[in-house]
Amino acid sequence: MWRRRTGGDTRRSSGTARAAAQAEPAGPVEPPQQPALTIDALGRKCPIPIIMLAERINQVAMGGVVAVLADDPAAFTDVPAWCRLKSHEHVGSYELPQGGWSIHVRRNY
């Protein structure tokens, strides 16, 4: 069920899409670490998914992974940007079969 998305979006045109296809392995990719906590933010608009993440990330142990399920396109950019601002690690974003992504974040502190 997992397919890795490294960046960009479906609106991107052929050149980038081609480059991305070459860079990514074909077929489903397993996330490297199972999440210790899953936050269901499907159907919620940004900034709500980020607020839920910020509220709950301390519920996992240091080094643990939180999965944020979100389908607002803003979350695809905003969760990794939040990680950068807050010095947590964006592990990866994986497409969900029903649409949206499971966005994995590792707690760093």
Binding site: G7, D9, R11, C46, P47, I50, P73, A74, T77, D78, P80, A81, W82, R84, L85
Partner: peptide
């Protein structure tokens, strides 16, 4: 549109707020 700004997206910066 319901899409966030393509500029902020391409930069990889916060699109909300």
């Amino acid at each position: 549109t319901l899409r966030p700004s393509h500029v902020l997206e391409a930069m990889g910066v916060l699109t909300h707020g």
